[in-house]
């Protein structure tokens, strides 16, 4: 078990180094950082001096080493556009994105699992067929369209929910939260649904097919033959056996939610990291783009790590053999 943890963490570090290399290449070679920093009337000598002080004449390996060292301490340089440290910009925006992602992930997981279990148990019921049709919509419509449709229906026609922004935000230390005010909470509803709908339908379809599969197994028949209650059979025995693939997909999809909140944040004018990234792309703000890349990769890596540990918790077969086999 310990060997497994250490191996996984080492693998994660390798992955992060690869991403850091990409990010480093991005800002070192897409355009000239010196040109981006100085004004038009800077002399050639001044530019050369700046190049020297910035260390841009050092060997590439040394520069990369410095980049990794700084990045690991959270220093991604200064935004070309806003003239402020990138890490501050991201720290300001991260709570908005993380709260949105958390709520939509929770929505996708809870509603998806519930609908999946229901339609797996009653596969010919009316509701299951309805869920199946709804899920087709969720899978096939792009999120920006869903977002606009939701805004049109709930904000424009019905006027029930706000169409943009985070509502009232309270400050808890460095963390700005929308959870503590009514307007903050209702502002979360539409973007969370928009962002999580695809994941919800994915989870629902996965749980449904896994449930159908598991219900056919001998141990479910035997559990019934032992006279266990329906609840014990369906939720104790069947659902738990569907969890391993569900954890895999949910983990990966949670990463997707955070990484691809860009579109939803744009549609809802949500002041999060995705919105920041989009602005950075438009203005070729390379340090922000590079930092965002590293951050998203970090989130993916951490989630994958957590997913691997959850397998261990759920499946005793891995607990026993995993250390030796994998």
């Amino acid at each position: 078990m310990l060997a497994f943890i250490i191996r996984r963490i080492l693998q994660s570090i390798v992955v992060m180094l690869m991403v850091a290399l990409l990010s480093f290449t991005l800002f070192r070679y897409v355009g000239d950082p010196v040109v981006s920093m100085v004004g038009r009337d800077t002399t050639f000598e001044e530019r050369a001096a700046l190049r020297e002080t910035l260390g841009l004449n050092d060997p590439i390996v040394v520069q990369f080493g410095r980049f990794v060292k700084n990045a690991s301490m959270g220093d991604f340089g200064i935004s070309y556009e806003q003239r402020r440290p990138v890490i501050d910009l991201i720290a300001e925006r991260a709570p908005a994105t993380l709260e949105l992602s958390f709520v939509s992930g929770l929505f996708a997981l809870v509603v998806g699992v519930f609908m999946g279990v229901y339609s797996g148990l009653h596969k010919d019921g009316f509701l299951s067929k309805l869920f199946q049709s709804v899920s087709l919509v969720g899978i096939s419509l792009p999120p920006f369209l869903i977002g606009i449709l939701l805004i049109y229906l709930f904000a424009v026609i019905l006027g029930w929910l706000p169409s943009m922004g985070r509502g009232e935000v309270r400050q808890l230390g460095f963390w700005s939260t929308g959870f503590l005010s009514f307007s903050g909470l209702i502002s979360l509803i539409l973007p969370a649904i928009t962002l999580g709908l695809f994941q919800m339908t994915l989870i629902m379809r996965l749980v449904r097919s896994e449930m159908l599969e598991v219900m056919r197994t001998d141990y479910i028949k035997f559990a019934r033959a032992r006279g266990l209650t329906n609840r014990a059979v369906n939720f104790g025995h069947a659902l738990k056996n569907t969890l391993v693939p569900v954890i895999t997909v949910t983990g990966l999809q949670l990463g997707q939610i955070i990484a691809y909140s860009i579109i939803t944040e744009t549609v809802f004018q949500w002041p999060g990291m995705g919105y920041l990234f989009l602005q950075a792309v438009q203005r070729v703000d390379l340090p922000v783009m590079g930092a965002y890349l590293v951050l998203v990769a970090l989130i993916f890596v951490v989630i994958n790590l957590i997913v691997d540990f959850l397998y261990y918790v759920v499946d005793p077969r891995l607990r026993m053999e995993g250390g030796a086999v994998s």
Partner: peptide, 23 residues
């Protein structure tokens, strides 16, 4: 359900798959 297991027990063909692997 109350009769199954209590008054009529059952044993199936394949012991390898009759037990839930997670418990």
């Amino acid at each position: 359900r109350r009769i199954r297991g209590k008054q009529i027990g059952a044993i199936f063909q394949d012991p390898l798959t009759s037990l839930n692997p997670l418990y």
